[in-house]
């Protein structure tokens, strides 16, 4: 495992997050600190409601902490503007969610090209080529023009993996990526995610309830009541 600080692409310190208002206000994250390195797959595990997903959304800049700091590629992002956080998501972060969340009206190819269109680094032809290549790597090279609705659940989740990798992000955040799939498809999606991420030197942080998946990760971080605990 690499320990070089240059390989740290995502870091957070002393994150606190409260959810709800008034009497229903809950202290979901209680001073969490965390690092993710290139080429490393980290699993965050724990019971429902322990704060795993909340942490993941904070790390993915989809939410803002009440306290604490988040750095992405050594750049402090926790207090940055919405525009800066959005730009960072576009350039540095790829998401895979429990539900594939594909745009149903668009083809697999279009879905994979969407993040690339926003980033705007490639022209239309290059984007299409890269999307085809990624769909080929997840085993859907012959289904690029199918609408999302014409794909099975496993296939849709593989398109979501390809979409997460579209902009070559340094960080892949996956929230129960196999939670909605059968055993065979779970293994397939996990293998794809880790293989491609390792090949491209990306840090993968995934939240899972699946002990088999957690077992196969480079590092497992158990969580309870908003804090990391020792295994």
């Amino acid at each position: 495992m690499a320990t070089n600080t240059n390989s740290i692409v995502l870091r957070c310190e002393n994150l606190h997050r409260y959810l709800g208002e008034g009497e229903g206000r809950v202290h979901v994250l209680r001073g969490v600190s965390f690092e993710a390195r290139r080429g490393q797959v980290t699993a965050i595990v724990g019971p429902s409601g322990c704060g795993k997903s909340t942490l993941l959304y904070l790390l993915g800049l989809l939410d803002q902490p009440n306290d604490g700091s988040i750095w992405i590629s050594e750049q402090l992002m926790s207090n940055s503007s919405d525009l800066d956080r959005t730009a960072a998501r576009c350039e540095h972060i790829g998401f895979v969610f429990q539900f594939h969340f594909l745009m149903q009206e668009f083809s697999a190819l279009d879905n994979v090209m969407m993040p690339m269109r926003k980033l705007g680094r490639l022209d239309e032809g290059q984007m299409a080529d890269r999307a085809r290549m990624l769909l080929g790597e997840v085993g859907l090279g012959d289904k690029t023009h199918r609408l999302a609705t014409q794909l099975s659940g496993g296939e849709q989740q593989r398109v979501a993996v390809a979409r997460a990798l579209a902009n070559q992000p340094s960080i892949i955040l996956a929230d129960e990526p196999t939670g909605n799939l059968d055993v065979k498809n779970s293994a397939l999606v996990f293998d794809l995610l880790t293989k491609l991420a390792k090949e491209n030197g990306q840090a993968v942080v995934l939240v899972t309830h699946n002990p088999d998946i957690a077992e196969r990760c480079d590092e497992t971080k158990p969580m309870r009541d908003g804090e990391f605990v020792r295994k």
């Binding site: 576009c90 998401f95 993040p115 926003k118 980033l119």
Partner: peptide
């Protein structure tokens, strides 16, 4: 999802 991809 679009926002998570970086759409402003």
């Amino acid at each position: 999802i679009l926002r998570s991809m970086g759409y402003t």
